[in-house]
Nucleic acid binder design. Structure first.
Lengths: 254, 254
DNA sequence: CCTGAGAAGTGGTCTATGCCACTTTCTACC
DNA sequence: GGTAGAAAGTGGCATAGACCACTTCTCAGG
């Protein structure tokens, strides 16, 4: 039916207005006051407030009040992620290209790839799926100077490093970081999970045998479908295996 | 300061039991049914369910039901190889014991340690700090049958596996999983971060040379201070190193 | 046999209300 | 004047109930 506007959202938007127009640390009206002002019940107000507390925009203090949070900068630091080198899991992988272009690196990517912000790169954003189910978002950046003739098809290929080798690039090592994060609105939408759902943020910087940065990948993996499993041998040999495994699951109810 | 047990938490714990004992994809009882079973109101049930949905353990489907989302059963899969270390970071580690006792394993822990829920275990919960700053919460469980004379001091010891060996337990290997999560209220409070902040959930199950499960460790690492960094060698040598590094930066919650 | 309408069951939203716990403020007592 | 205690205001927890939206199953009608 029509876009039945939820009261909770109306209240939330009202609160967002308050947050925008009030300095950090300023108190917002008491819950019971908001009820009257907006003609809704207290649980509805509480629900809206809770949402904003969860996203870090408001801070509640028992017995004192609710206040505009001080730092929204927390979200800023999260910039890049990388996909696991061999993120294989049972199931059939596929991917859907969301965006691809040859563009200037920009400040952020340029810094990681040791390029000037104006240097051109191959860029591709894609949604990776397992058995048709969204699994991860992957953003791949390759300096155009490294492989000028690289095609979209090359980048889409499952065996990307093979293609790179064909272009004369010999990958030697990669540094990868993994950290926990939560999905933002667009990520949540693309991955089909709720906003603020736990996720893994991978970031990988790959270097070739000549020491050049050849790719920068960052990706967001669904936290409800992935875990990293490692088998540790504490004995003589410090060798162990590390896998990224798909959690078997919830997509197809038998 | 009596530990007034919140109904919401009671319901949540009940749901956690269900999640542990049911396969992924299995439906949990309808909300109205849970109300009757646990003698609480529906908003209370919904609140508890919502918490678990937010952390990715349950999935709600309008008109169909609520289902177990996590898949715990994961095997097979070998992709990359590398060595992974236990969480460590530069800086001075210290720890503060929050709780310790000799208690029945309970359903959840018992299942992981292959024990009956009534079997006794050594349990210790501690806050781990780096340079005096809260870094992680660690919950350690060791079957009493494995090391009956284990003391608190043994478990507090930095060289825990040495102590185990003195008790005749020879650790051979461990399986560790890492997944993203978000902090709940008590975790947030203890770690000094906002609720629902990104965090890493480590789970480690250690086995001795006789195949017995000797410890189950469950820990929550602050997502704003930790990342996992691995150096991958994609060439001939399938060896790589993995470290958990403290992120440099602010520790200010606001 | 197939189809479609309805019933039943599920989660989704919202209301109205009560009491508790914590914080701050003000007041009355010493 | 100083201090203990009451009062008021705040968020926190929980209840009971109503109605809506979506899904699935059943069964009567074609």
């Amino acid at each position: 039916m029509g876009e039945a506007i939820l009261k909770r959202e109306r209240v939330r938007d009202h609160l967002l207005e308050l947050i925008e127009t009030h300095p950090a640390g300023a108190p917002i009206p008491a819950e019971r006051v908001l009820c009257q002002q907006l003609s809704v019940s207290r649980p509805t107000v509480r629900s809206a407030v809770e949402e904003l507390v969860n996203t870090g925009l408001l801070v509640r203090q028992h017995g004192r009040g609710t206040f505009v949070a001080r730092a929204k900068i927390t979200q800023e630091m999260v910039s890049g992620t990388g996909s696991m080198s061999l993120p294989q899991a049972s199931g059939t992988w596929s991917s859907r290209v969301l965006e691809h272009a040859r563009i200037p690196a920009g400040a952020r990517v340029g810094r990681r790839l040791h390029l000037s912000p104006a240097a051109e790169i191959h860029y591709i954003a894609r949604l990776r799926l397992v058995d048709g189910e969204p699994m991860a978002l992957e953003y791949l950046h390759v300096p155009a100077a490294v492989a000028p003739s690289l095609t979209l098809h090359d980048m889409e290929s499952g065996d990307f490093y093979e293609r790179l080798r064909e272009h004369g690039v010999h990958v030697s090592e990669a540094v990868q970081s993994i950290e926990p994060t939560v999905t933002n609105e667009s990520e949540a939408s693309l991955l089909g999970v709720p906003e603020l759902a736990p996720a893994l943020l991978f970031e990988r910087l790959t270097t070739d045998s000549e020491g050049r940065q050849v790719e920068y990948v960052h990706s967001i993996y669904r936290g409800d479908r992935y875990r990293i499993v490692s088998k540790l041998t504490l004995g003589d040999q410090p060798r162990s295996t590390v896998d990224v495994q798909a959690k078997i699951g919830n997509s197809n109810p038998f």
